[in-house]
Design a protein around this nucleic acid. Sequence first.
DNA 1: GAAACGGCTACACGGTTGTGTAGTAGGCTG
DNA 2: CAGCCTACTACACAACCGTGTAGCCGTTTC
Lengths: 205, 205
Amino acid sequence: MSSQSDLTARARIRDAAITLIAERGAQATTIRDIADAAGVSSGLLRHHFGSKEGLRDACDEWVQAELTRIRSNALASAQDVFAALRAAPLRLQSYVLRSTMDGSPAGERMFDAMVQQGEDWIATTDVKTDDPRAYAAVLTALKMGMFILRDQISRAIGQDITEPPGQARMLRASVEIFSRPLVGPELAEQMLAALERYGAEEAER
Amino acid sequence: MSSQSDLTARARIRDAAITLIAERGAQATTIRDIADAAGVSSGLLRHHFGSKEGLRDACDEWVQAELTRIRSNALASAQDVFAALRAAPLRLQSYVLRSTMDGSPAGERMFDAMVQQGEDWIATTDVKTDDPRAYAAVLTALKMGMFILRDQISRAIGQDITEPPGQARMLRASVEIFSRPLVGPELAEQMLAALERYGAEEAER
DNA sequence: GAAACGGCTACACGGTTGTGTAGTAGGCTG
DNA sequence: CAGCCTACTACACAACCGTGTAGCCGTTTC
């Protein structure tokens, strides 16, 4: 896409920050690491972004803008779900996941946007639920868990899921999970009934 | 269960460490914070556990032993799934989740154990899958995502899911998700076919 | 009763972190 | 050419981290 050196220093710093934060998390990434990776002094980082938090805000904003841009492009010319999924660079996805887990404003906004998107999607399908909001929120969390724990999944199946063969296994398994009921109707009824019971117990106290 | 002061200092330190690490993560928790929370000097922490990593190992071990103890007890006298789920204190669950995300040995062991448990469960049911290992791994990650992102879910649905009303909404939604197919059979077939296509493309290169 | 030991504290040490300050090089404007 | 602004570096600083050391105090042991 773009080589390291033909970017402005400001852009290089932002780029390096996103990569490192996506890998290690914001807490574990020092401004000196970022400056080294970008090939500049740590002072320049401060000069451009004011502080570490200022840099993080700039990264949040840029990533969010970039992702919405990529997604609207992919959506316009998407053949299938996987093509759209592959359109967004792994770096940016990882960055958002980290941000969400660390509780940054950008992460929260991103999560809420995904929930809203899910809720809208539910309305267009024939999925039945008594609580669309909760349904969408839980579903979003489930999906994100798959990416947050990708290192764990990779180790468990003995194959790197960021590479095609492992990714295929993961996606196939997820299709299997979401296309077939995991618990039967009678067990589901039983579970919902148990939930009602607990709810009633709590209400009495 | 047990008040803070009637424990040995060693146990109080371990307890405080588990609580703080569960809340903030190991990286963001200092030994001075732990010592303060336990009401002892930071030197005593070192005296008992050697180093910060030594303390963390001790916590990992203790939590794992405690959880297996609780679960085997709950399993022996379990009426339903939710009772067993409620048996384990939130602190311990959060601690394990943090450990898993940080990539500690205890977290890895716990994840692998859950995957294995899931794989065994699959074998006893009539769930159809071509790749039980991947199926169990992904399912485990999905389930954990729900707990990792509980703060996000709480915010999205406007209710704390660690408290009964919110928890009920979350559990009901998850039952709905896992008891009804999310994508229809024909769309699922289409997705799997698309995956095969991608796999073939990759193999050619 | 003296020696020894374990629980426990106080304090100092390098190293690292985010931040602040002073200063240089180079292009633009008057 | 002088002035100035922006990009950029080098260096110092205070705070905080995990760690190391010395020592106090009550109990046990002989």
